[in-house]
Design a protein around this nucleic acid. Structure first.
Lengths: 164, 164
DNA sequence: TATTTATTGTTGCAATTGCAACTATAATCA
DNA sequence: TGATTATAGTTGCAATTGCAACAATAAATA
């Protein structure tokens, strides 16, 4: 079909370029760092009898939106969680009265999720522990410049594909 | 008890320093990048009907040790997985004849896990897909220097606490 | 408008994970 | 040595996740 084409763009399909040693090293490190940080922070939260990090993520997003709330899919986009699990995560939060599902006026299918007072309070209770954990496991290890540099690099990785 | 002590080391207990904006930004980015990469690679593996990444991680560690194999806890240390789940992950691998549990001579409690021929083959089958995925989602986004710089920074984060 | 297709969110079920309890062996120590 | 404590690994159970099927509504199209 396009096997005979020699255009550069098409050739990319055949290149199947393997990552370099340098790339692989960074890749592995990224995952190790991530796992270790998450493990430490998770431990710290548990030790203080606080809920898992996911809860914080969701509540924080909702807090930022205040009274407008967010659609479920919007939360999903922000914290990169799929809809199935998000639906049930919201269930759990709702059961604890940390969020509310309000009917959605503009779209009969969905609902708007809003944070409650209790949710706000929990958020305030989590932050000191979470924040300190971040500082201890992460912040302290880098200077401010290094931190910015890291962000810069990570942003490049996150950038949308420019390829068509 | 030690409330009245004024030694610097002890004062750290009270500092409860919150992370800076810069720190938080890098922190959030780190997690976003990680999740996105894992999602993409996972999709790519599934599309090619290959097993999840964990399997590859374990098989690779075993491959590196060749005939000596590894104790379960050694695998755990390397891929940062706790023993409960590792035990059952090994079960699954064993059921697929990808690894073998050999009795351990030097320690009657444990066993040595070794990769089988089939395991090696699977490893070879996964790598092209996995490697390309890494290159596409990660390698291509950074120059070689940026990649090294990223590794350097991540290593700093991973470094053991120098605090006593 | 009627029909088709896409999106939003939920639910059932199976697989995986986390936690606690447990067995078996090793290491420590009185 | 015998008793105690620590380590390696497994298992049961509950909670969470992933996947596929589904219902309800919206958007696109004929």
């Amino acid at each position: 079909m396009w096997l005979h084409l020699q255009l550069p763009t098409v050739n990319l399909l055949f290149m199947k370029k393997s990552p370099s040693k340098t790339t692989i090293q960074a890749w592995v490190l990224l995952h190790r760092v991530h796992r270790k940080l998450l493990e430490q922070v998770g431990l710290s939260l548990k030790k203080n009898e606080l809920p898992p990090l996911d809860w914080y993520d969701v509540l924080l997003e909702l807090h930022r939106e205040g009274d407008t709330g967010l659609r479920q899919y919007e939360i999903g986009e922000r914290i990169l969680l799929n809809k199935h699990n998000l639906s049930r995560l919201i269930d759990r939060l709702e059961k604890q009265h940390l969020v509310r599902r309000d009917a959605c006026e503009e779209d009969g299918r969905g609902n708007r999720i809003k944070i409650t007072e209790e949710g706000e309070e929990l958020l305030k209770k989590i932050w000191p522990v979470y924040g300190q954990s971040i500082e201890k496991e992460f912040g302290e290890k880098l200077t401010k410049n290094e931190c910015s540099e890291l962000s810069h690099l990570l942003e490049k990785v996150l950038d949308q594909d420019e390829s068509a």
